[in-house]
Design a protein around this nucleic acid. Sequence first.
DNA 1: GTATCGTATATGTACGTACTAATTGATTTC
DNA 2: GAAATCAATTAGTACGTACATATACGATAC
Lengths: 265, 265
Amino acid sequence: MSNAISEEMTGSTREIKNGWKPEIATAPLYMQVAHHLEARISNGDFAVGSLLPTENELAEALGVSRQTVRQAIGLLRNKGRLSARKGVGTRVEAIEATSGSTRFIAHSRSELFEIAAETEFVIGFREMVSAQGKLAVDLGCRPGRKFLHITGVRYPANRGRAFSWNEVYIDSRVAAAVKDVTVARRAIFHYIEEFTGEKIHEIQQDVRPIAMDEDIAEKVGCKAGDLALIVNRRYYGSGRRLLEYAFQILPADRFTYTTTLRAET
Amino acid sequence: MSNAISEEMTGSTREIKNGWKPEIATAPLYMQVAHHLEARISNGDFAVGSLLPTENELAEALGVSRQTVRQAIGLLRNKGRLSARKGVGTRVEAIEATSGSTRFIAHSRSELFEIAAETEFVIGFREMVSAQGKLAVDLGCRPGRKFLHITGVRYPANRGRAFSWNEVYIDSRVAAAVKDVTVARRAIFHYIEEFTGEKIHEIQQDVRPIAMDEDIAEKVGCKAGDLALIVNRRYYGSGRRLLEYAFQILPADRFTYTTTLRAET
DNA sequence: GTATCGTATATGTACGTACTAATTGATTTC
DNA sequence: GAAATCAATTAGTACGTACATATACGATAC
């Protein structure tokens, strides 16, 4: 597309810088650069398997310092989109798509955004509940606190086979954030952040295997007793205040959780 | 203990710097600083929940630049040992130990080292195999390539209840690295690195739920049909050469996989 | 007493420089 | 032809500076 950097071959450095900068005025520069690079990768500008321009070249072309480029590359290396080798360069890595399995566990907050954006959460049921017994323990709160309880199925954005069964508990003080939502196309905690203006600082995830009961199996198109992973998530605002608790049940036959660890040095 | 930094109150900056520096001569400075800080945390010098000295103070006390301190702190923040807030300071976080569950999936290469160091892999069986059929696919190699196949149980370092059932396949060219090992107290890939001098650049992990068969269940003290997580790991050297393939079966009743995502900004 | 406004302090961002070390590829040497 | 050597290139490390921005705290005004 008519990307500012496509002028790289003809335009001067200044022009590139000016044509590109306005992207996200509020975010730090290195994040803007990271987004820019990522866009150009999925764009095909930088082919998977090829080497990125050198840090110095990128710095000059974008009109930022090499340190800033390095910070941006660092973000993408953490995400696994890039890998670097001393004396060689920075390689564009393939996004992990091992044999039809989909990403579903995030390694960073921003990845959680992306995954949610690729799926649709169709809310089938909602009620106000008062936390008692096991639920109060799960939520880590005093019994009696009120939560909005939402359940539903999450589908791929293209509405293929069900992705997961989801149950969400939202602190009643911020429940209004999803009052009118029937199909969530973003992460639920995104709605909360938008509504309250308060940022979710920390998300705790844990993963366990379970065998699905008939009820849930039916909803995601499996048989009772089929294996699944259950992912619990706790969302904390400032001061470790629990704003949202959710769990997600992912049929084992459709998903594999994959991570790649790279040498630090 | 007689830590170099315990002289902080009496000695001059120079002395501290000199007294402390020799720790790991080969590692980059910021890693040394990270190790140093981590040691002082587990040491009790910096209490959990308290604030670390400011970056400038640490920089001056250790005789390094603030950037180097920031890099070190960055490593520990990734590991979850520290968290920072603008305008406030850097807080020492409690290590995750959610209700008796043990860490078993690493988020970085160094963490894999640590987990392995806390457990003992008792090798019960070993043979040379030629990769055929499904194994060749799992290993991603041509049928016929030779591997050393090792199986055994991994125990906590204190020899409590079994930790996991493990099976390891090692490229025959580097198999000699574990020739004489009967009880591995370090990660297997650590032996390989030591033997070949070549560093493992990349480790791919994937996690799936399974129901244990009687054979394996018995070995880790469970009943047939009990749920477990199976973790597959592929270890690549330079040039993405597969050096080791291993899988590990972790009974679900003993382990939860937990991660914490923090806001990037 | 309460609210408001600075001020100090802490981490975060961004730039710059210089040097180190791994890798590659061409050149030389045997 | 093969091995050793050298030079160029590239990311990594480490230092420095300056300013931005969020937070906490004290002083002031009402």
